[in-house]
Structure formats: structure tokens, C-alpha cells
């Protein structure tokens, strides 16, 4: 199963260069195209630039070259808060909720992007979808467990009904049981029509739900394939054992 080439991908980057310092780019020319409805997993060794890539797309890390587009609309230069209204939602790996605000306030913040009359209904819809959060909405988000935090972060991101949902290692620091729950939820979200991009270290679990995977090494895309085909690919083992030299032969 190869990704079909479609005229307007849900999310695309062209020759994207990004990093905290202009003279030290971490993402060095990435061409990525994600078709609507895909569940794409970004893999790669530590320091490959996966996290920087998604942060740059979300507008948290400065972009120094190239473009980012959502559904064909160029959003490269938009500040982070405007990318939301273009249909892009991002869940960072850490500090992805406001711990000093209540659960309800966290959701209200996200809902503020919507027209006033739609907010209450949308928040109620989130409580329906994540019943754990509805138990005590006035609770400070900082006191939630790791799994509940992740639920809240995802609920916050879904509030605006995004076309593309990007998550940076949602499984980090969670117990296997919770990870399974989160991944099941991501499959659900994807099935409801949202394009999902997932950065993961948890390769096995991620590939099991991925429709396609892209492998990033040293800030560039080195390999890609369907989730199933990559599961048994020896390239993965080599990658995560880490020697860059052996990669050359596998460049796609």
C-alpha cells in the first residue's frame, strides 16, 4: 500500500529548514506530504529532528526556509495561534496543558477560537468524548495523572475540529496500558476523518496503527514506507542502534 498522490495534501512541507538558531538548522530541507485521512508516523533516532520538524510546522520553532501548507493554503509565516484557525492542531510532548488552570478553563481557552455561540456545545462534546475529564471539571489540571493530562491535551487540540492533528510523542512517560488507550483513541480520531501525524519512539505500537511511516535522520527524510512493510524492515533496527554510515545504502 503506497500513499496515493493527490492534488492537495492535507499537510505538506517543501524544502523546510528550521531550528532554534538560524545558523544551526536542525531540520534541513524536508519535503513531506500527508494525504487527507492518513495516520503518518515520524520515526528516527534521537536528535534526528522529528520533534523540531513538528514544532516548526506548528509555529513554535522558527522556520528559516521552505514552506508549510495545510490543504494547499500556505501557512509558513502565520504565528502559532493563527495556524489553529487554518485547521492545524498540535499536542506538544511535555507541558501540553495549563497546570495552573482548571480542566474546564483549559478547554475554555481552546474554545475561545470558535464563534461564541458554538463554544459551550463543543466543550460539552469533549466531555462526552473524554468522560474522565467531566468528573470534576473544576480540578486544577496540574493535579491530573499522566494519562488524564494526555486526554486533556488531546481534547484541547480537538476542540477546534482540526483537519490535521499533530502529536509529539504522546506515549512518553505513560504506562503500557495507558499507551494502548491513547493509541486506540488516535485510531478513532483518525477514523473520524482527521489526518494524524505522530512522532513516536514507541516504534512497534506506532507502526501497528500507522498507515504510513517516514524515517528522519539528521534533519532529512531517509526512508519511508507503509506501516506494515516497515515493521519487519531491518533498517529500523539498524537505525535505532544508531550508526549513520550504514544508512547510505538504504537511502530512498
Amino acid at each position: 500500500m503506497t500513499a496515493a498522490v493527490r492534488p492537495t495534501p492535507a499537510l505538506a512541507t517543501q524544502a523546510l529548514v528550521a531550528g532554534y538558531e538560524p545558523d544551526l538548522p536542525i531540520v534541513r530541507g524536508v519535503d513531506l506530504s500527508v494525504a487527507a485521512g492518513e495516520l503518518l508516523v515520524l520515526l528516527g533516532p534521537n536528535g534526528a529532528g522529528k520533534s523540531t520538524l513538528v514544532k516548526a510546522i506548528a509555529g513554535v520553532v522558527p522556520i528559516h526556509g521552505g514552506t508549510v501548507s495545510i490543504g494547499g493554503r500556505d501557512i509558513t509565516r502565520l504565528p502559532a495561534h493563527r495556524k489553529i484557525s487554518e485547521g492545524l492542531a498540535f499536542v506538544p510532548q511535555t507541558e501540553n496543558i495549563f497546570g495552573t488552570l482548571s480542566i474546564h478553563e483549559n478547554l475554555q481557552i481552546a474554545a475561545a477560537v470558535l464563534p461564541r455561540e458554538k463554544r459551550a456545545a463543543r466543550i460539552a462534546a469533549m466531555y462526552d468524548r473524554f468522560p474522565d475529564l467531566a468528573v470534576k471539571p473544576a480540578r486544577l489540571a496540574g493535579s491530573l495523572s499522566g494519562g488524564q493530562r494526555q486526554m486533556l491535551a488531546i481534547a484541547r487540540a480537538l476542540m477546534v475540529d482540526p483537519q490535521v492533528l499533530i502529536l509529539d510523542e504522546p506515549s512518553a512517560g505513560l504506562s503500557p496500558r495507558i499507551v494502548a488507550e491513547v493509541f486506540a483513541m488516535l485510531t478513532d480520531i483518525n477514523a473520524s476523518g482527521v489526518t494524524v501525524v505522530l512522532v513516536e519512539q514507541n516504534v512497534k505500537a506506532a507502526l501497528a496503527i500507522a498507515s504510513r511511516a517516514v524515517i528522519l535522520v539528521e534533519g532529512k527524510i531517509r526512508h519511508e514506507g507503509s506501516g506494515e512493510s516497515l515493521q519487519n524492515d531491518p533498517i529500523l533496527a539498524r537505525l535505532y542502534l544508531g550508526t549513520g554510515q550504514t544508512m547510505k545504502a538504504d537511502r530512498s
Binding site: H81, P92, F98
Partner: peptide
């Protein structure tokens, strides 16, 4: 609390 997250959350 977190300006970067605030931007991501649409503020």
C-alpha cells in the same frame, strides 16, 4: 504559565 503553549492553544 506557558507562552508557547498559549500560542498553540490559539491565544
Amino acid at each position: 504559565e506557558n507562552p508557547a503553549l498559549a500560542g498553540i492553544a490559539g491565544i
